[in-house]
Structure formats: C-alpha cells, structure tokens
C-alpha cells in the first residue's frame, strides 16, 4: 500500500493526527471514522499486495489499536472497520496487542481478527471461545471461527482447520451466556456452508444445530430461532 500522493505528501498522516488530537468522545469517533474511511479507500485503490506494507500503514495500525482501548464504542467500531480494511498486515499487531486487563478492548481486537479471517488467528480464537472471561470476547471468537478464509490453503489443511473450528464451536455450544451460544449458531452455519457434506464433522455440526433448535432446544428463544434459521439455510443450499 502506498499512502503517499502523487505530490509526495502523506495521505493518511493528517487523519492519524486528527485521531491523536481528538479531545471529546464524539470528536474521537468522527476522526477514527475518517481515518478508517481513508485507509479503506486506499486499500481498495491499491488492490493491495498483502505481503507488502509501508511504514505509514504501521502507524495507522498502531493508532487504530490504541483506539480499541479507549472505551468509546463508536470509535472502536470504526477502528475495527479500519483494521479489517487493512487486512492481513494487521494480524500480527492485533495478536501482539491483546490486553489482559481490558476485556472491552480484547473483544474489539478479536472482532477485528474475526473480520479479517486470517488463519493465523485460529489459536487465539479457539482459546478465546473456550476460556476468555468476557462474554463479548467469546462471542466475537465464535463468529470468527465460522469465517476463516482458507482458499489459499491446500485441501488437507483446509479440512484440518475446519475440524478444529468445529470442535471449538461444539464446545462453545455449552456456554452459559445466551449471546455466546447465539454466536456459535452463526459460526456453525457459516462453517458448514463452506464444508462438503461428506467431510468429517459435517454431521456433528448439523446435530449440534438441531439440538439448539429442536425440542426442547436452547433455553433462550432467540438462540432456538437462529439455529432453526441456520438449519433451513443449510437445507436450502442442498447442492453442496
């Protein structure tokens, strides 16, 4: 990505500065949104080469990572969008930045990793769903486990990764918080949509959804409804 204009001036620096100088919750939210919008536009224009990443992009990543820790939900949403637009170059910094003490920030970071869908996040998503103390972190992890991008991997690795995702999601189906079980149904739906019917695990994934949807099903009505929707979508895509 090249963040320098034709005249040699930095395109993103002023946006970073605006975030750093924001002195109100509202101002921070707007500045972050502008920065995320700028980086998304540049990433799109570049058809970016994923391995290459210029120094200014690191500054943008740094800046967005800090915003995740500010307890400003509007700004954090924008920062996550920006990190997802940056994509794979943001994965290592995200993995390195997880804050043990701030589960709000951790949830946003896991959400960004889930949105990027990079397989380097797998270990973290597994352990986050299994044992993070924050329900919002476990929720984001469950969703992420359904949407890793595996196209670039050899077939056998794809199957192995999907099996690990499935095992993690099956464990998450017993979570005590309804919102995590809801996210598990969403994760299972996406995972199974990308899986061949003959693939090991497809059947146990369906069975888990049936247990959540059926009689008596999950205690929480919205989880039962979501699992039912997942099953009807999976039945509808019967060609796969």
């Amino acid at each position: 990505m090249n963040k320098t204009g034709a005249d040699g001036l930095s395109l993103v620096r002023p946006f970073i500065r605006a975030v750093e100088r924001a002195d109100s919750a509202d101002g921070l939210q707007k500045a972050t949104k502008n920065l995320a919008g700028a980086i998304a536009a540049l990433a799109k224009a570049d058809h970016q080469d994923e391995s290459h990443c210029d120094p200014e992009t690191w500054d943008v990543i740094d800046c967005l990572l800090q915003v995740l820790g500010f307890n400003n939900p509007g700004a954090a949403v924008a920062a996550v969008d920006g990190l997802i637009a940056i994509g794979p170059p943001a994965v290592e910094p995200l993995l390195g930045s997880l804050d043990e003490r701030n589960y709000g920030a951790r949830a946003w970071a896991v959400r960004a990793l889930a949105g990027i869908g990079d397989v380097r996040g797998l270990d973290l998503l597994e352990s986050a769903l299994a044992c993070d103390i924050g329900p919002s972190v476990r929720r984001a992890a469950a969703r992420g486990l359904g949407q890793l991008r595996l196209e670039a991997l050899p077939q056998i690795d794809q199957i192995n990764v999907r099996q690990r995702c499935l095992d993690a999601l099956l464990g998450g189906g017993g979570d005590g918080e309804w919102v995590v079980r809801y996210a598990v149904t969403v994760g299972l739906e996406q995972l199974l949509l990308g899986m061949g019917r003959a693939e090991p695990g497809h059947r146990s994934g369906l069975q888990a959804l049936q247990e959540l949807a059926g009689e008596p099903g999950d205690d929480t009505p919205v989880v039962r409804l979501r699992a039912g929707l997942a099953l009807s979508r999976l039945a509808g895509g019967a060609g796969g």
């Binding site: 939210q29 939900p73 509007g74 949403v77 709000g104 329900p135 919002s136 929720r139 309804w178 919102v179 809801y182 929480t220 009505p221 919205v222 409804l225």
Partner: peptide
C-alpha cells in the same frame, strides 16, 4: 453509539417480543 452487547440484548427483545415488520 453504544456497546454491541447492549444492542444485541435490545435486538433479542425485538425478536422475542416484537411483531413484523420487519420480519424475524
């Protein structure tokens, strides 16, 4: 502008207590 956790709780209420439109 609020935490997604709270929006999710609110939307759960719309699903479980509300009526279309919009549909579930």
């Amino acid at each position: 502008l609020a935490e997604n956790s709270l929006k999710l709780i609110a939307l759960r209420g719309l699903v479980e207590r509300g009526q279309a439109p919009p549909d579930t």
